[in-house]
Nucleic acid binder design. Sequence first.
DNA 1: ACCGCCGGGTGCC
DNA 2: ACCGCCGGGTGCC
Length: 976
Amino acid sequence: MEFRRFGGGLQFSIIDHIDLFAGDQTETLSQAIRRSVEDSAATAEDEPEANVLFGAIKGSVVGLRYYTGVVNKGEMVSLVRQPQNPYDKNAVMVANVYGSQVGHIKRQLAEPMAKIMDSNLAKVEGVVPFGVKNAFTMPVNLSFWGKEENKTAVINELKIHGFQLGPEFKGGSRSVEAGGPPDQWLAPPKSLMAIPLTPEQLKSAFDKLFDDLMEDKTREMEAAEAVCTPLLPHQKQALAWMVARENNNDLPPFWVEKNGLCFNVLTNFAVLERPESVLGGILADDMGLGKTLTTIALILTNFHNGKPLPLKKMESTQPVPGTAATKRKGSALKENSGTGDELPSEEVATPSCSKRRQDDSVTIVIDSEDEGESAAPKKKAKTKAKSKVPSKTKKGPIILIEDMDFAAALGGGVVAESSHKKKAQKKSQGVSKTSSIPVDSKGAGATLVICPLSVISNWLDQFEQHVRADVELSVYLYYGAERNREVKFLTQQNVVLTTYNVLSADYGGKKCSPLHEVKWLRVVLDEGHIVRNPNALQSKAVLNLTAERRWILSGTPIQNSLKDLWMLISFLKMKPFDVKEWWTRVIERPVTLGDGKGLSDLQTLIKGITLRRTKTSKVAGRAVVQLPERTVFVQKVTMSEQERRDYETVKKEGRDVIGRYVTEGTVLTNYADVLVILVRLRQFCCHPHLLGSLLSVGGSTADMSTPSELRERLINKITLVLSSGSDEECAVCLESLRQPVITYCAHVYCKPCICEVIRSEQANAKCPLCRAQIRTEELVEYPGEDAESASTESKDAWKSSSKVDALMSNLLRLRQEDPNIKSLVVSQFTKFLSVLEVPLREQGFSFTRLDGSMSQRCRAKAIKVFQDTAQGCPTIMLLSLKAGGVGLNLTAASRVFLMDPAWNPAAEDQCVDRCHRLGQKKDVVITKFIVKDSVEENMVKIQKRKQELVEKAFGGKNAQDRKQSRIEEIRALMEL
DNA sequence: ACCGCCGGGTGCC
DNA sequence: ACCGCCGGGTGCC
């Protein structure tokens, strides 16, 4: 059964237009550049087109008696070309919602239809109005959808063959039966007359799509005994809901049972056998509410046939601390060293911890003149040292790690399964299972958890922390070159943990992999929103997994559009929407056209499968989480006279260059240069050393004299752009840059992505952003951030800056008040972090550092020592804004110093949320340093103005306006 | 298919 | 009758 591919589906035009999900303020610069280029250049072919209805005709389905597929009155059918049909190459097959063939389109009509469909002039959709009992033929109403410019071609093609396209038939069968075609067409097409929702209504409806999903989800459930962490009330609710979802026997949304048949009220499709219940759903709780813990509780509580994992005392196979440095293949598997008092990340916030409201953040602006005294929060932080300390002897579940690097990176946090245990498991394969292996009636017992690499260690930690020591739960980390790919072995685990990358790498072109051969009890997609492009290999790999139950964990289930949702629905195998056509016809298009029915159907769909609580959600009148207060101070920094003079010099230079671009109207074409100038000014506000080797900007890269000079300049550019922290993304894969390279035309991509573009376009390859010729030999690689050389080179000549002074006086005062308080010092410039190391060392601060250039191993280590409250452990973490992304848990800190304003305030919030999250027991104080009368102040003003626009729902702008506002912004920044 | 079409049987009324 | 008519066989693409 082959299905016509829906090339990209329909554009979500209204929503794109009003920029519903991605507010202007969260846009990265590369997005802006990409868009401005796209606006002028030809539209990308793969983007879904705005399809309109050309009209409809009546056709007939013939050959019914040869096929088993049946349809209902008013049922939607899909039309699939069969070019290989031996009797007629124009054959068009008619299939029902489940893809069973019903018949063929009559030959005469199939001929023009084949032409239209093959040349992609229109998509054709069918509804059978009546005659479903007919034995030989039945009528079908065909509607044609396509791009406006193809309308005449379609009409003509049909006309040649004697078919006249008319207006759409009124929905359902009644009217069609009543009158002949001419009468039909005189009637106003009702579905087109329906008053569409306004973009504002649509926006607000969408914003609310994931709201208020709590009703009937308030029942609580205790976790299985195997979970040693007490669940918070909202987590118990989530557990009850998840268990119920997994054990439900309900029909999926929009299905009803009718005379022994199952009937889909949206497509009018009926089947004898019940459509599979959706066992699982979307847990869309806000970050920090404990999705990981809840999921672990689910795994243990709904372990087998709705029963929890039985408690079974382990024989004394548990290694004693300190003795278990088991060696395997020459590398040490580390044993939990049992420091004992590290705080478990997510479970420490007991309900009694804080009863204060957490949503009343205050912003206080303090002038630099009186920073000395009043910048300090008046309130003394109350330290509630009532943390629940895990027992020193506690041992977590068995975790088997094959990747030695990773094991080392995780340090003491992991207990390795000893080798003899593993052998025992291997031996038992196929005969009798070891006690830890459940024998499910369906043979499925293992849960597969797929997550981004960055949160793997979090999962391992949490299994360790939340699973009782005497519970034998096998957790296998399927990662690294040495991973065990045996299907039998994987099937026998209780939990297999892997990353999206490993999954799709295994899946690759082969379309199968060890993970795809296993029949999983449960598949969990952590941060599931990252799987969104249905064309990506990763998505296909995820969709093709076999599982009884499926879960998506995501704090932000809607990233950009409705299409992201399809991916989630499809993963959950919610019939019939796992097939794109039905999603498009039944949900996506109606919603796009502003049809209230479509929207309410979508709401129903989401409601049935989603649980979402935000930090502000209430459970029985009480907030789900009660986070400590969070206060934001803006501390203005005044430059010294010398600094001011130097700054003005740099600024004047830049202003001249940008001013020229503005008058020439070439700001956007020279965006890379503009960025460089802005970055330099921003760097200067922090510390003059950040500027590094001075480079001249302004000259077009094309007219450079020697290739080596050009290369050097490109390296400078890419370094500046990447260290600027604007979180550039690759315009090809839309992900964060991997192995960044810069083209001769000064645009930045992932190396693999742009190489693939060049390979496929051969000699004709053009830069996706500016259409300049590009060649592989001309790509210049990013040399990496060279923090070391920067700090050593400037060591003897080190001098302070006003901003550094401001930070240091804060830190010194803080240490005096409470030497145990920990702080995050955040900058977008890793070089600035290096500069800061000097005075910190001088003043005898113990600090650690986390930036993007560090390996997983170093990161894990840095986090661990910082979170450690023992004496002598670092009290300061130098954190690069980019590295402070999701998943990190830095609750040991209660002070945050944001050293420089970010383009994207959301990135700042996210960074602050690293410590202002579940587990934080102190009030969090955030200090933003802004240099007075500088580009920084202008940035803040622009941010504010944008925020106001968004709040007034004026966020929507057309492409031209946006381009213009980009330019206006740059002018405002440079005070031009 | 309670149709249309095909082709064999048949042939005044 | 080199036709018309009748009635059985048959039937998607």
